[in-house]
């Protein structure tokens, strides 16, 4: 029986944190409970939207970190 499957389980599934056993239970529950399936679809859609935010540091920041690493190595030697 999958009557104990909640939205929290679906959230864990969408974020890849459900165990193999739970994945099966959640999938079975979604097949019979439309509200869980709807929640799953909404989460997937929201995840996709959030994925559109992707920021990168400026190359200068990377260069400063590399320089610091090099300097601290030189000092240590």
């Amino acid at each position: 029986m999958n009557e104990n499957i909640t939205q929290d389980h679906v959230l864990l599934l969408v974020y890849g944190e459900a165990s193999a056993t739970d994945q099966k239970r959640i999938s079975e529950a979604m097949a019979t409970q439309p509200e869980l399936l709807q929640y799953y679809n909404e989460l997937v859609q929201t995840r996709r939207m959030l994925d559109s935010i992707h920021e990168e540091p400026h190359p200068t920041s990377i260069a400063i970190v590399s320089e610091h690493s090099h300097d601290s190595h030189t000092e240590a030697v």
């Binding site: 920021e55 540091p57 400026h58 200068t60 920041s61 400063i64 970190v65 610091h68 690493s69």
Partner: peptide
């Protein structure tokens, strides 16, 4: 954010 990013890695190093 750039400052904090640099400072984070400097602390790590």
């Amino acid at each position: 954010a750039e400052d904090i990013f640099q400072e984070t890695f400097i602390k790590i190093i």
